[in-house]
Design a protein around this nucleic acid. Sequence first.
DNA 1: CTTCGTCTCTTACGGCGTAAGAAAACGATA
DNA 2: TATCGTTTTCTTACGCCGTAAGAGACGAAG
Lengths: 209, 209
Amino acid sequence: MPRAGLSREKVLAAALALVDREGIAALSMRKLGAELGVEAMTLYYYVPNKDAVLDGLIDMVVSRVTVEPVGPWREWLRAFAVAIRRELLAHPALLPLVATRPVLAPGGLATAERMGAALRAEGFGALEGLQLVNAVATFVVGHTLAEAGHTPGHDEPDVAGVMESLDPGEYPVLTEALRAGLGTPEDHQERFDRALDALLGGLAPRASV
Amino acid sequence: MPRAGLSREKVLAAALALVDREGIAALSMRKLGAELGVEAMTLYYYVPNKDAVLDGLIDMVVSRVTVEPVGPWREWLRAFAVAIRRELLAHPALLPLVATRPVLAPGGLATAERMGAALRAEGFGALEGLQLVNAVATFVVGHTLAEAGHTPGHDEPDVAGVMESLDPGEYPVLTEALRAGLGTPEDHQERFDRALDALLGGLAPRASV
DNA sequence: CTTCGTCTCTTACGGCGTAAGAAAACGATA
DNA sequence: TATCGTTTTCTTACGCCGTAAGAGACGAAG
């Protein structure tokens, strides 16, 4: 029986809290151990290495995205996209991780399977349906990355700073767009909605509509 | 006059070669120095710190994407998307970097400006046009990341391995899709083309078509 | 020759992931 | 209670990393 009451789950939970609070760069085995009142090497009893911690983190987040594929397929695919985005924005520090690991992690497999099955019932082929799911997922990750996936050190795009340093004579259209709100949260939301609508509106099963 | 004939450009070029050859994780100041026949600290005469090297790398790649915005806007936007993808796939190790830094880097500003101006001439607003450019860019980055942006260590998705370890009883649709080519290069290409068509087809200026 | 600006090196510090194994705390048994 | 095997934790050490600080080597200019 563990003396400090540790477990893989508690290690991962502490890691997520640490990352959310101080960013991905602050996640070191030593700091994570300190967070749990334990030496760094102790963690290796619960986790094979640091990479497993990272994998565990993305799996935690991905597993939280659960959407029932019922009703019109465009609607629940949209809900799927929105759910991914919400979850990613809740843990922006994890974005670079989620983006650079294969989507075929255990946490997302069941969801992918259910969606693929539902789409096949709508006339899509198995490959075609999962391509669609994949396209939506990669779109959301890409968009959310651009929105919130800043490398620590380069903090957020800093629209105001860019605007000032931009020569209006050289970049008139950019200047005008920035003044009109390019890069603001509302802009991201609007762009996300519009592009998602376009994407979903343009995709359909090969055979019929 | 430099004794070793070094320069910021040569440092960056060597860094790009090193990254292309051994991956982003292999890029350390010491190795980069060795690559150039010089000690690590020597590099700091040409570059303020490692982060500046990374910034320089993405700027090199981004700057190479130059598309003339002439003709039907959907066509050159498509060419733009294809050009980004080509450039990113040529240096897949840089993908995680490109994805996590603001798109508003110097190298891409001029391109964005020209495209924004061209779109405004087509009836888009300044903000609206740049949103469109941004949407296309983030889509491409997201898609290409999923295609080739594997974290070193996790090498490429390894479709064969996933297929074998997948229980066909539990994941019938996934199994079928994998057998049909999900995750192959052709699959990526096809999905990219289809989603890009959908995206471009669904986007239009607010006022007219 | 001296001086100065340019370029490169040496040394050192604190941090990282983790391999190897000693050491401590525990429940069960005698 | 005393002992034992297992489970859990810690100590030490190695080779990496980015880079701060400053010494040294060099050609050109006076």
